[in-house]
């Protein structure tokens, strides 16, 4: 599966590399666009020293961890949200006659390596935050774990959003509220959100396990909403459950697929 993915992605990259100038420009611009959210955080902290009890560097740490995972998804799986285009134009029929999973084909279709600019930007911010906060090594092991779980959770969301488009072919934009909305939501400490919102994104849509719960562990902070300590370590469980649900939804979506046209 990974092999097929890499091979397909590589073919698209080679095709794009035929235009080296626009290739370079797009990487730089991806970096710039992604920088907007950091700029917003910096502007906010030029006016205050803490936001809902969190310092600038703590917020940048949460932003960095969530965004590395999100940017990786943006590069590797976000093409799933073009599914309604494939359904409308009939290219989805073509994917179904190929002996490879439709998920991989949709995810790699028009794969853009230039989106790596965004990943680099997020890694840079994360690197800065970890250094500035002087976090202890004994807790830093959690960082790769949370990025991995975040990646799985966001990928599952993209898959769910893609499956939703089999039903909502006319309004694919709805799904970006879930995918890009989740990316936006996890950029800030959950302490700024209302209690009901936080409950919702902990127990219904498990976004709290991307960076909030494990992030509190790394930062050595108690949860202002008072959840018990063991919740900090539930990321892998949440990721697994959501991934299974997403897989089922994708299958259902394909079963519901009604090829149109002749």
């Amino acid at each position: 599966m990974v092999r097929t993915y890499v091979l397909l992605a590589w073919t698209w990259t080679r095709a794009a590399a035929a235009y080296p100038v626009s290739f370079a420009i797009m990487t730089v611009l991806g970096f710039l666009v992604a920088g907007l959210d950091v700029a917003a955080i910096l502007v906010i902290f030029s006016n205050t020293t803490t936001l809902a009890g969190f310092t600038r560097d703590q917020v940048l740490f949460l932003y960095g961890t969530s965004n590395v995972a999100f940017a990786l998804c943006d590069m590797l799986v976000s093409n799933l949200d073009r599914i309604s285009l494939h359904v409308k134009s009939g290219t989805f029929d073509t994917m179904l006659i190929r002996p490879v999973s439709t998920w991989i084909q949709t995810a790699t279709d028009r794969f853009l390596i230039t989106r790596i600019g965004r990943v680099l930007q997020a890694l840079l911010v994360l690197g800065y935050a970890v250094t500035a906060l002087d976090l202890p090594w004994s807790r830093l092991w959690m960082v790769p774990v949370m990025i991995g779980c975040g990646f799985v959770i966001f990928s599952a969301l993209w898959t769910l959003a893609g499956a939703l488009q089999f039903v909502l072919t006319d309004a694919p934009e709805v799904s970006s509220a879930f995918t890009y909305g989740s990316g936006q939501l996890t950029q800030y400490p959950f302490a700024i959100y209302g209690r009901e919102v936080v409950r919702g994104v902990t127990y219904v849509l498990p976004l709290a396990f991307v960076n909030w719960q494990p992030g509190l562990y790394v930062l050595g902070l108690p949860d202002p909403f008072g959840t018990p300590e063991f919740m900090r370590f539930l990321g892998p469980v949440a990721a697994l459950v959501l991934a299974l649900l997403a897989g089922l939804a994708w299958r259902q979506g394909i079963r519901r697929y009604r090829s149109t046209g002749s």
């Binding site: 397909l8 073919t11 002996p99």
Partner: peptide
Amino acid sequence: DLPLKDSFELIRLL
């Protein structure tokens, strides 16, 4: 968007 050659290469991989 791909040249015919690249399309065939993709088919080979798929």
